[in-house]
Write a protein that binds this DNA or RNA. Sequence first.
DNA 1: TTGGAGTCAATAGG
DNA 2: CCTATTGACTCCAA
Length: 328
Amino acid sequence: APESPLSSAEESVKSQQEEQMCRASIQEPSETSESQPGTPLPLPLPGHSGLSIQEMVAMSPELDTYAITKKVKEVLTDNNLAYMKRRHSSIGESHSLETTLSGSDLTQGASPQNLSQQQQQQHQQPQLKKPRVVLAPEEKEALKRAYQQRPYPSPKTIEELASQLNLKTSTVINWFHNYRSRIRRELFIEEIQAAAGEGGSPSARPGKSGGEGDNSCDGTESDSTAEGRPSGSEERKGLLESPSLSHRDEEGEAEFPSASGTSRPRGGIIDSLFGIPESISAAATAAAPPCRNPKDSSLRKKKAANLNNIIHRLEKAANRDEPHEWEF
DNA sequence: TTGGAGTCAATAGG
DNA sequence: CCTATTGACTCCAA
């Protein structure tokens, strides 16, 4: 499909008033193009297909998701609800935005070295986009070490990390989320590759897993043992210098699930992982030629799962008592 | 509230 | 210009 059915434009529908407004236009169908008094959403509009979404859906024997998506986008665009960027808030606004994040430490901006020159320039004049934080290699290293000791750090640890690295706590939280997620994904792919490569090219996977994953998945052991555990009672002074991080808080680092221990579903039933009904999965598999590349396979499965999800939602919506309650 | 999954979008590098 | 990387974000489930 030319565009993802659930693009960010549609995502934004879910928020606050936008949702209401859109529902106003999407739902009250049967009074067709008669939008409710007060709702500024008279569809159809000039330049667009004359049908409301509801009509479109009702009239077509099949669910044309692309057309529906297009229509939704039209509605959003016509009401200036589309194209709302997540990062379009001004600096001032970003503060109010940040406050919604739990535990965000607003007093600590990203350290200057985290901002590109361009970003710093933008900082000076009122700018619309929130500058992207770019972690310095030392900061990443420190975070990785912290991860190896504690993949699931306590809020307290996060606070400490943030203050020592001069980062926002939300940045540290995000980093851990992302890192765990990406390690999990790497492991998952590796597993698939291993499964697929059992006969073929055994573990011939390139050193990719080494690169960023150098200390990612495997790192738990190698690094922390090699570099030595937090031996002393104090080494709080420098994350950036100290080879290992001293986060032996509450439970103690022995408890670490360890990267490889991150509760990862074992046993390569991928379909069950994704919850893909066999029919869909089979269809997806049948639709495509047998793949040699396990990545393709994984990708296809994911796509199949996604498609299945969409279909499921559409079906759910279609089977509703109130047929207007479309949930995209 | 927290973590996982998925996604967006800025940035860097080829 | 294209792609990969990665920080930030949203949504959802437990």
